[in-house]
Nucleic acid binder design. Sequence first.
DNA 1: CAGTTACGCTACGACTCGTATCGAAATCCG
DNA 2: CGGATTTCGATACGAGTCGTAGCGTAACTG
Lengths: 205, 205
Amino acid sequence: MPSRTPSAPRAGRPRSAAADAAILEATRAALVELGWSKLTLGDVASRAGVAKTTLYRRWAGKNELVVDAVAVLFDELELPDRGSLAADIEGVVLQFAALLDRPEAKTALMAVVAESTRDEPLRERIRTSIVERQKRLVLEGRSRAQARGELPLEQDPAAAARTADLIFDVVAGAVVHRTLVSAEPVDEEWATRFTRLLIGGLAGD
Amino acid sequence: MPSRTPSAPRAGRPRSAAADAAILEATRAALVELGWSKLTLGDVASRAGVAKTTLYRRWAGKNELVVDAVAVLFDELELPDRGSLAADIEGVVLQFAALLDRPEAKTALMAVVAESTRDEPLRERIRTSIVERQKRLVLEGRSRAQARGELPLEQDPAAAARTADLIFDVVAGAVVHRTLVSAEPVDEEWATRFTRLLIGGLAGD
DNA sequence: CAGTTACGCTACGACTCGTATCGAAATCCG
DNA sequence: CGGATTTCGATACGAGTCGTAGCGTAACTG
């Protein structure tokens, strides 16, 4: 979102919410067609039917714009209760994989992560608007599994948080790596094998 | 490497190998200072003491150049025998993490992966010159563990290959995600926790 | 109404891109 | 040695993008 909080009603002409939506939509479309490196802000502006100046008034640059344009896609993820820990993991893996199949998502996500390695504020923006919000899925899945008796209750809340972070990195990292680096499909068969590995480990089974 | 195979000794002045080395070194240095998006080929050329024309004669563009500049870094990875499967995994995780701590490695790797989502030849170049070469670590670790009796011998070679790919995606993906997305350190404590999860699974322990 | 802010539009200098051209340097072959 | 061949450094070029500035108009507040 643009930086200004809309909670302070100030004088003057308000910013057009429709322009915001059109710009973010145009950004996603341009990402699909052009990819990251060839995406220009001038092109986005003309696609959105908006002056280039308007774009620069609201976003500092390409990075910030793309983060906002893609962040909303990740809010679609859900974790319906499928009755078992394994089924829940498979479900979220397949959902995440479907999201990463969308060209605008995979292109934008990797590009902004790459830029964030040299840009601390950008990394923080990514963390708060994308990554941190999805850890809810891990927490929800674990609490369900504990309620079913599939996982033990953890006493130390700090240790529990570290474990949740670990699992999040393993699940998200594996799916991203499989999709973008290995460039192999995350289908049901892979999800099943991954889930079995995650639950039972190398030694298990 | 530049596309021409040096095995065909042809007439004329040969390409300077020193220029190659200087360009790749300059590329890594520029990546550290400028990051991906602000890296320009003209800047690389002047750092390397080389004409911009020379650069374009050998590489098609920024993507290909950066892949070559970074690929060599990944060949440093080794897998010394630490006596147990768990110790071997911890060792390779920490080595990979140390590699990703180098700014030129993390910046370049993510950037070229992002570009490769819209560029099939580039993805293939990444696969052959970086990814596929490192799967040797997984294969070696598994064969050692099997020799120690820590892992069962697999009969079906196709299934064994799929398992190796899965483990590779899980290990590499988790380390990359932890380092670049979560932006948390991969230290010994995390490596230990990850290894225990990988071997024993969620249910284990 | 006056005051304030966002808007579309145009224009600008600075920079980068990738290519073309040129004469000089380095190597192979006869 | 001398001619052919290829790369080299240097320079210049049109095209495209960047981010900003200026201007008159539109929308909203009090």
